[in-house]
Design a protein around this nucleic acid. Structure first.
Lengths: 207, 207
DNA sequence: AATTGTGAACCTCTTCACAGCT
DNA sequence: AGCTGTGAAGAGGTTCACAATT
């Protein structure tokens, strides 16, 4: 497949959410102009993004919401559930467990991994907590495909190496550090301080 | 000032963190190659980013860590504390209150705003919870400059409009929706589902 | 009449490559 | 000799503008 840019994928996620909302409101058809307006971008951008994957609209009419949502869901791989391991059960980890948005999109947290001995073998919201020692068995048994890292910077790389060794190819990293992984592994970073510092820059430098 | 790209600002935040870590390890001097390696980018990118703001290095030698950290801190506006209001005290809000990274970089959550009557007038980790009714007084009294929105999609735009009306120019938005704001207001989005869906796309379409 | 799909133009960001300092 | 700073080249992403279609 031709290389698709990150921004295109992120926008497809937004279109998907837009279509969900439209369907909730019983809207059947939508134009690239409307999708664009809702997401604060241009209609050409919407059409170009979709054009990488096929032609989904009808000239003169727009897109069928149900169909387009379905197509984008297929493109993004949202037609199946994903088994997720949450590593680190501090502030952020705890918030993610109860984050409805993940569940709704089919990301299922199957297991929590944390080395605090007080937490070991407990169950939170129906999800068992293990320590790292039997990680290979845990990953295997739960068919884990995605790892969310919500651990301190100091241990993030070491843990990543372990999960990579056991075949994990996809990470969502909340630690404010750039992880080193092989070429066939993808890390997405979620770094809240960076966004806040972007605001700080903006407030400081606007005139 | 010449328009600086978002990615440059995000990288400056990363360089800043890199320098903090180097200083903790008593490193005094660093080259663009080292900064680049730690952050998985090229050295030309590091030098180019810095060049928008001045010349901070010594040819043949590299950068003085202390000085460069100081300069970047100044550029990003981290030389002062920022007064922040947290709006919404659900899972995510609760996690942010205890998120050390924010405090460390000078972002101080002064007040929590939540409309749940059970939470009203309580105090969490030393931070008072108010409802939205006296919002203008609260923003004023606490000199709030940044609003973190951790509320459901349905109420996000309405709340944003209120804060914009009372002069807030900078938002960190956790609701998965694109907010409409005037040109002189900046919204940064933190959308964890989008990153997960990026992983889903990668796993579905690789090879 | 309305709206898509898309090549071409445009713009922005990244990398190259090397002169210029230390 | 080593490393920065930067103009120029290259790569990549966005917008334009219009033919094609309903």
């Amino acid at each position: 497949m031709k290389k698709i840019s990150d921004s295109t994928i992120q926008r497809l996620s937004k279109y998907y959410r837009t279509l969900e909302h439209q369907l909730e409101d019983k809207v059947q058809t939508i134009s690239s102009f409307e999708i664009a307006h809702i997401n604060n971008i241009t209609s050409a951008q919407v059409r170009k993004d979709l054009s990488f994957f096929g032609t989904f609209g009808k000239r003169g009419l727009g897109y069928n919401c149900e169909q387009l949502k379905d197509k984008i869901g297929q493109i993004l791989g949202l037609k199946k559930d994903w088994n997720v391991a949450l590593v680190g059960f501090g502030n952020i980890g705890r918030a993610l467990i109860n984050y409805q948005e993940f569940k709704k999109q089919g990301f299922k947290i199957k297991v929590i991994i944390d080395n605090d001995p007080r937490k070991k073998n407990q169950i939170f919201s129906g999800i068992p907590i293990s320590d790292i020692s039997d990680v290979d068995k845990i990953l295997d048994k739960n068919k884990i495909e995605i790892v969310i890292l919500a651990v301190p910077v100091k241990v993030a790389q070491g843990l990543t190496d372990i999960f990579v060794k056991f075949g994990i190819k996809a990470f969502l990293n909340f630690a404010p550090t750039s992880l080193k992984v092989p070429e066939d592994v993808l890390v997405k970073n979620e770094n809240m301080s960076i966004e806040l510092e972007g605001l700080s820059f903006f407030l400081t430098n606007r005139k």
